[in-house]
Simulated scan of single mutants.
Amino acid sequence: MKDSTALSHKAHSTTSFYHHKASLHADSCCYLVDQAKHPEVLRLLFEHDPAPVYDLPYVHSEYREQASDGPLVIKPTTSRSAEWLHNWLTEGKALALNGPQLALEEIRDHLVSLNTVRAPHGDSLFRYADPATLGSLGISLSNQQCLRVLGPLASLHGCYAGANWSLAKNEAEEASSESNKFCSRPLLLTKENLAAVERYRHQLLANALAANNELDEEVVSCWFQQLITLGAPDEQALVEGSLLLVTRGFSRELSDDELTTICNTRHGACWSDTLEMLATLVHSQEGT
């Protein structure tokens, strides 16, 4: 993966999204939690705050029946609840929302407008409360998309895969009415956005596999690309193929001749056939 600091400066100048090593803000006006990933959050909130101030964006939309599994926006009213939520922020369990003088209702109404996103294959739910969503998508967002996500907010902050990220308006945007213009339109995600998310997730997975097996990250990344070319249907297949190469002693990328042999001699296009050929190919090289 490219150096996140280098990506940060480039992204910040064009999209207002950037990775950084700075501490995440502890003075956020609100926090956002994905209840689908953390179903215990509402119970814990009442344990940390006897009279909590919160809202459920799904309640105010067509997804009312799914409210208990949707986003939860919280305005901390005690130092105890604020500290707990900030800890969740640094652990990658919550997002921090910043918007001076914004009422909870204003933030909630904006979040309701983000419940659904327009994507290449139709409208779908947008998991904006999950730090992984913007953590992997953010680097690909255009300035207009960033403005739409932020709406009246000045910034959003989160942590995904151990990396802190921020989505923020620069001073010129914050002082103008440009963001209001975009808030009336649905958030549109392109094929390029979705492809960027897939690449980011694949890179994180490749890095983890490399670290766990003492391999070069570039080698595992190359395996992923080669396995995709061979028909790997999903991330699980990428892991299966890579681990098979690891167990057979491979520590380098497959050669063009090896790829050609697999393509020409496997019995079918099923992934299981490809795995069998990978095992045979590697086994035939042992001791050479």
Rank of each mutant, 00 (worst) to 15 (best):
G268W: 03
G138L: 07
H9E: 14
C183G: 01
L147K: 10
A168F: 11
S284Y: 09
E171W: 15
L215C: 04
T78N: 05
E217M: 03
H283C: 10
F182H: 14
H19M: 06
I139V: 12
L238W: 07
W84N: 03
A154V: 10
A196W: 05
M1S: 13
Y54F: 14
A196N: 02
V117Y: 01
P50F: 13
A172L: 13
L95D: 02
E276V: 07
T77R: 05
W88F: 07
S13Y: 07
I139W: 13
L97C: 07
L227G: 00
N87A: 12
K93F: 11
N213W: 01
N164H: 11
V197N: 05
E91W: 07
L72H: 04
W223R: 03
E105Q: 15
T261S: 08
R148V: 07
S166Q: 12
L56E: 06
K93R: 12
C30I: 06
P39N: 03
L134N: 02
G249R: 00
N164I: 02
A269P: 08
S16E: 04
W223N: 01
D27L: 09
R252A: 15
A82F: 09
S16I: 01
R185T: 07
S179V: 11
H12N: 15
Y128K: 06
H121P: 02
Q236K: 13
E286Q: 11
Q226E: 06
H48Y: 12
A279G: 13
N212Y: 12
A26V: 05
S79M: 08
K181Y: 11
A26C: 06
P186I: 05
P186H: 05
A103F: 08
E174A: 13
G231Y: 05
L102P: 02
L137H: 01
A103P: 03
H12Q: 15
V197D: 01
H121S: 12
C270L: 15
F182G: 03
E198P: 00
L167N: 08
A96H: 00
R248V: 02
S28E: 11
M1T: 05
H25A: 15
V219D: 00
A168Y: 11
K181H: 12
E174K: 11
V149M: 02
L147G: 10
P152Y: 01
L278T: 02
R266P: 06
D273F: 00
L245E: 01
R108W: 11
V219F: 00
T78L: 04
G138P: 09
S8M: 05
K191D: 13
L42D: 08
N212A: 14
A195G: 11
M277W: 01
L194M: 05
E178C: 12
N207Q: 15
K75P: 03
N143M: 09
L167Q: 08
A36T: 09
N143E: 12
S179P: 04
L205M: 15
L89Q: 04
S251Q: 14
A195D: 14
T133K: 06
R201G: 00
V59K: 14
L189V: 01
S113D: 11
R201D: 10
S28F: 10
Q101T: 10
A232C: 01
V282S: 09
D55I: 01
W271M: 02
S136R: 04
Q226T: 06
Y18R: 09
L45P: 03
